[in-house]
């Protein structure tokens, strides 16, 4: 087994509140990613998936503090000094944000945005950097890259701007790409295209990727493994090809049941009752217990430990019973 590219263990993020207290947003996240591997991070809003990405890049809000450990190629990310952090952000990890319109400086040309990091961080000449930028723009499927370099962000469409964002990450040639809902702000027709481009170029270059999304199907399409998050914890970690058939956590089952399907004849989609909670709102026991149809009194008081189950990792006290019941129902 090769050394992991990214390894999170016991990653916890607390944010200080106005009244002097603190709220837990991430609660002991353990995750490991091999070089070149793609992992999906799936959950509802507030489940902590974006906060995980922010912690990995040390882009946490001022009031938040992270504990536990984040290791990138063995180096301790939380302990890096300013210079190390800059080198890590420059060539180690690249971020594709959800909303390119807000995440690209609107007052500067696309060419300046793409070449800035190369020129400033690596001393590449401006002319050379522009040539590389044009080449990568062509790779992400943008016609007439020379003209695009001279345009401003408000002059191009959202889909094209997200390709520009992806191109900017590819230009830095990082070992790890973090994609935070890269297609949520785009039209449905363009979503597939952008994901396909990201997936192909990542494979060609052998980059690792953490793909953050609330769309379970999208994660299954591009990732080898999927981690499902709920209330700041990973509740199920499983390889993508077995998730459909062998999902074990009640929350994952709920997510799978709430998708429309072309061959199912169900009159209504089943929804998970209640609303998602954040880590700090959950009681002492399992955070999903209040919405879970399998929950017992024990679930509310005792937090479940992550257990190996059927080739994956599940955080549910009744996983065996639930699985047995499902198998019985199928048979």
């Amino acid at each position: 087994m090769t050394a992991p590219l990214l390894e999170l263990s016991g990653l916890t993020v607390d944010v200080a509140t106005e009244d002097g207290g603190s709220r837990t947003l991430l609660d002991g996240v353990d995750l490991s990613l091999a070089p070149g591997e793609a992992l999906g991070l799936v959950g509802e809003s507030g489940s902590g998936k974006s906060m995980t990405m922010r912690a990995v890049t040390r882009l946490l809000p001022r009031a938040a503090s992270a504990s536990g450990s984040i290791r990138f190629e063995g180096a301790d990310v939380l302990g890096m000094n300013a210079g190390e952090l800059r080198r890590y952000r420059d060539g180690g990890v690249g971020l594709v944000f959800q909303d390119p319109r807000a995440h690209i400086n609107p007052t500067r040309r696309i060419g300046a945005f793409l070449t800035e990091a190369l020129v400033r961080n690596r001393g590449v000449g401006r002319r050379e950097a522009l040539a590389r930028a044009a080449a990568v723009l062509a790779e992400v499927g943008i016609d007439d890259p020379q003209r695009r370099l001279g345009q401003y962000p408000h002059e191009v469409s959202g889909g094209m701007l997200q390709r520009v964002m992806i191109a900017s990450v590819l230009l830095a040639e990082p070992r790890l790409i973090l994609a935070d809902e890269p297609t949520t702000a785009l039209d449905v027709t363009i979503q597939r295209e952008v994901v396909a481009i990201l997936d192909r170029l990542r494979r060609e270059r052998g980059m690792g990727m953490v793909f953050i999304t609330h769309d379970l199907d999208l994660a299954l399409a591009v990732c080898g493994r999927v981690a499902v998050m709920y209330a700041g914890r990973i509740v199920e970690l499983r390889s993508a090809d077995t998730l459909h058939e062998r999902a074990a956590h009640p929350y994952t089952l709920g997510l799978l049941g709430s998708r429309p399907s072309i061959d199912a004849r169900a009159e209504r989609l089943s929804a998970i009752p209640g609303r998602p909670v954040s880590a700090f709102e959950s009681g002492p026991g399992c955070a999903f217990a209040p919405r879970c149809s399998f929950a017992t009194a024990g679930c509310e008081s005792e937090p479940p430990a992550p257990t190996e189950f059927d080739g994956g990792l599940v955080r549910c006290a009744r996983v065996e019973e639930i699985h047995a019941a499902r198998m019985e129902a199928k048979a």
Partner: peptide
């Protein structure tokens, strides 16, 4: 958000302040 993008690309703080924040 665009300032976060500049920071997360590893640009020096002075450059981020001058070219993105101040500008």
């Amino acid at each position: 958000e665009h300032v976060q993008t500049a920071l997360v690309r590893g640009l020096p703080r002075a450059v981020v302040l001058r070219s993105h924040v101040l500008r």
